[in-house]
């Protein structure tokens, strides 16, 4: 079986932010916009932060929670939104429903905050992406030992983050490909257990590299 496994082709990507033209000035408006906003925009506001440079680790790990905390000053709602992780949901629409439930619940309990206006609106954005081949390939799992260190952040984003919305099992491309080989269950588990949601890409790369080094050396 293993001889039939195609090599892993490393791809890279270049991304762009696209305005959706939609924005919210308060929690009620955020709720209303979330009812119909493009799923690509929800995806962007959960994962897009990884591709933006920031000086410090934001207090909350998605744009909705960060805006609620900074602009609406509703820390309780921000904490509830912050705990959501896209990979825990079957689809972005499921994630949308959870976002809506949490916000609606908060609006019902705290009507004063419903119309507290932000100084800076929440602008809904989405991602434009061009994916291209790097011509680099990995023929067997051990090949990642060197390949990971040479990965650009675009490649890392594409294979480790974006893969979660492309693959049927919502997992990264590395573990899915290695799982095709017999005898690498432990390595696959180690990769699956990396939670990319709290790490900038630089640290994520270090962490993945460390796992391959630990496993093969």
């Amino acid at each position: 079986m293993e001889s039939n496994i195609l090599p892993f082709e490393i791809k890279d990507c270049s991304i762009l932010s696209i305005a959706t033209g939609k924005h919210a000035l308060n929690t009620k408006e955020l709720f209303t916009q979330l009812l119909n906003i493009d799923t690509d925009s929800i995806y962007y506001h959960f994962w897009g932060k990884l591709l933006r440079t920031s000086f410090s680790t934001p207090e909350f790990n998605n744009d909705f929670a960060q805006w609620i905390a900074e602009q609406i000053h509703d820390k309780a709602l921000a904490e509830k939104l912050s705990v959501l992780q896209p990979q825990d949901f079957g689809s972005i629409d499921d994630l949308r429903q959870e976002l809506l439930d949490i916000i609606q619940n908060s609006l019902e309990q705290n009507t004063v905050l419903m119309y507290t206006n932000a100084q800076e609106p929440f602008y809904f954005l989405k991602l434009g992406m061009v994916v291209f081949s790097t011509t680099k390939i990995v023929n067997e799992p051990r090949g990642f030992l060197d390949a990971i260190d040479e990965l650009s952040y675009g490649s890392l984003y594409f294979h480790f983050i974006d893969a979660r919305r492309r693959t049927p099992n919502h997992r990264d491309d590395f573990s899915n490909w290695i799982a095709l080989f017999d005898g690498y269950e432990e390595l696959v588990d180690m990769i699956i257990n990396i939670d990319p949601f709290f790490l900038p890409l630089s640290k994520l790369k270090e962490k993945i590299s460390k796992i391959f080094n630990m496993y093969f050396k």
């Binding site: 696209i18 690509d40 989405k126 991602l127 434009g128 992406m129 061009v130 994916v131 291209f132 081949s133």
Partner: peptide, 9 residues
């Protein structure tokens, strides 16, 4: 050029 937000080249 490709008229799509995500393009795979």
């Amino acid at each position: 050029e490709q008229s799509r937000a995500t393009v795979v080249l």
